[in-house]
Design a protein around this nucleic acid. Structure first.
Length: 488
RNA sequence: GGCGCCAUCGUCUAGUGGUUAGGACGCUGGAUUUUCAUUCCAGUAACGGGAGUUCAAUUCUCCCUGGCGCUGCCA
């Protein structure tokens, strides 16, 4: 048995739960499950400008929905980075004293000037601070004198930084392309680059699974690890695994703003459209991961059983909302009656609708509706007439079925009535209803093409809709007769 | 511009130094059918380009092209 794994789920509460966020968190979760490990839930709120408690709560809620379990309760530990401020300050100080960091007095304005100049002269901009070799005493003196500074890591010159990514393979970068980078703001608060490394190290994280957008700053973090190691020898580096980004139809990083109309990009949009979490989790994971089989439908547990980082794709993947809907339909067909109706009621509640009470009728109606629809939202039209008697009038049916006369329409409904009334309740099956109706049609001399649409419209009040026999099976004998009777 | 990553049907992907390059979504057609849909069957469609290695490259190497990411006192 390998050493126990520990991953972190690190959402940044600077926005609501996004597809990409959910996918990364989900993959961490599944990896932890697949290795018998645990996870830490860490809210990365070091950007106090943009982080909000609302977003933090929203993401937690969305992830709990997606995983089908309380994400918070399942975590080995749960904290927000701002709670670790003393920890960061401690290491910031240590790293500064030991000379790994230095106070840089170049102002943001000066820096911007340098940056702009490099831009116009088409030169590469790598910043090597003029203050990188300032004696500590002088740094302190200038700060004491009221000078403003940021804290940068002293980047070594002419070194090749190499690490092995579990997905991308060996990555190496020249330190000379990095420059002295900022790890703490002028107000002394730390940046992602530093806070993250301290936490991962402090928590004993074994695997860092994150988006590919972090690949480029991994060498910088390697430098931070190295500095920390000088303070605490024997430090064990975690395994890095950078998963490919999800891109949109234009191959741009997926964003809500650029999404096509109707396309769900935020997790709450999936909920609002009436997706079941199993389908969203399944679909999300299949973007950029493949178990190397032809199986398409997986539960979270099944994915955890076969998951391996080596099966993760190296290239970015385009998001296909059509396929997400297909997953939803597949999942709805596989869920048990209890699960399906439960999700449906949950959807009604979260979208502010009146929740339909549990009943065999509801289950039958839902089953029939979901044969056609791919989401609960798409099923509303069918659910309506299945659960409520339509209001259509005889005149309307006649009008929709020209050239049939009202006389003929009435006759059709009358014969439905006469045919079905004698049927015993226990033979209320598709076969017996069909046999009886077919016989009636033959005797009447009418065409099936005229007869059935009239009956169907009497049953559903709309076109298109499910077939009259299907509806009859859902609503039951009494209601079936009532629906024709009210028109006569 | 610099650095890094990536490259199989329209999309998600499987795959191999010699394959009819497989599956799924989508799309098209057919069957079923009272409509829409479902279901079933069938079809459509891919190895970015150029060198090199090799008896043989989609597969290995290099170059190019293209795409994306990073290049923040964001994460």
């Amino acid at each position: 048995m390998a050493a126990p794994t520990l991953v972190r789920m690190p959402p940044s509460p600077t926005g609501q739960c996004h597809l990409g966020t959910a996918r990364t968190l989900l993959m961490n979760y599944i990896f932890a499950r697949s290795t018998g490990g645990e996870y830490i839930y860490r809210s990365e709120d070091t950007d106090q400008e943009r982080s909000t408690p609302e977003n933090e709560a929203q993401i937690l809620q969305m992830m709990s929905w997606l995983l089908g379990t309380d994400c918070k309760a399942g975590a080995k530990e749960l904290y927000r980075q701002t709670e670790h401020t003393p920890l960061y300050q401690h290491y910031l100080e240590k790293l500064w004293e030991s000379g790994h960091l230095f106070a840089c007095f170049t102002s943001a304005e000066e820096l911007q000037l340098l940056r702009d100049r490099a831009e116009t002269e088409r030169e590469n901009f790598v910043f090597w601070s003029p203050d990188r070799d300032l004696p500590l005493a002088e740094q302190r003196a200038r700060i004491a004198a009221g000078e403003s500074c940021v804290y940068r890591l002293r980047c070594p010159r002419s070194q090749t930084l190499t690490f092995t990514d579990a997905i991308k393979g060996e990555i190496s970068v020249e330190s000379d392309t990095l420059g002295d980078f900022v790890v703490a703001r002028s107000d002394g608060t730390v940046l992602y680059l530093l806070a993250n490394v301290i936490d991962d190290w402090h928590d004993g994280i074994t695997h860092i699974i994150r988006g590919e957008d972090h690949l480029a700053n991994t060498p910088k973090q390697l430098l931070v690890y190295r500095a920390l190691e000088a303070l605490s020898p024997g430090l064990q580096l975690p395994v890095f695994a950078h998963i490919p980004l999800v891109v949109d139809h234009e191959k741009r990083k997926l964003s809500k703003r650029r999404a096509l109309p109707g396309m769900a990009v935020m997790v709450h949009e999936f909920i609002e459209q009436g997706f079941v979490p199993e389908a969203v989790a399944n679909g999300l994971m299949m973007i950029g991961w493949n178990p190397k089989s032809t199986q398409e439908i997986f539960s979270v547990e099944e994915m955890a059983a076969v998951f391996s980082l080596s099966q993760v794709q190296r290239a970015a993947a385009q998001y296909d909302f059509e396929k997400m809907q297909w997953y939803n339909q597949q999942w709805c067909a596989r869920l048990s009656d209890v699960q399906l109706t439960g999700y449906y009621q949950q959807w009604q509640a979260t979208t502010g609708q009146v929740v339909t009470p549990e009943s065999p009728l509801l289950t039958r109606a839902l089953r029939l509706s979901m044969e056609k629809a791919r989401t609960f939202r798409q099923a509303v039209g069918d659910m309506q007439y299945l659960l409520q008697r339509p209001r259509i009038t005889l005149a309307e049916i006649t009008q929709h079925n020209e050239p049939l006369t009202e006389q003929t329409v009435r006759q059709i409904l009358l014969s439905v009535q006469e045919t079905l009334s004698p049927l015993a309740g226990e033979v209320w099956t598709a076969e017996s209803i069909k046999a009886a109706i077919v016989a009636t049609i033959q005797h009447s001399g009418l065409k099936t093409r005229d007869f059935m649409p009239v009956w169907r419209e009497a049953m559903s009040g709309q076109t298109p809709s499910a077939g009259p026999i299907e509806i009859a099976l859902v609503v039951g004998k009494a209601e079936t007769l009532a629906r024709t009777e009210r028109l006569l």
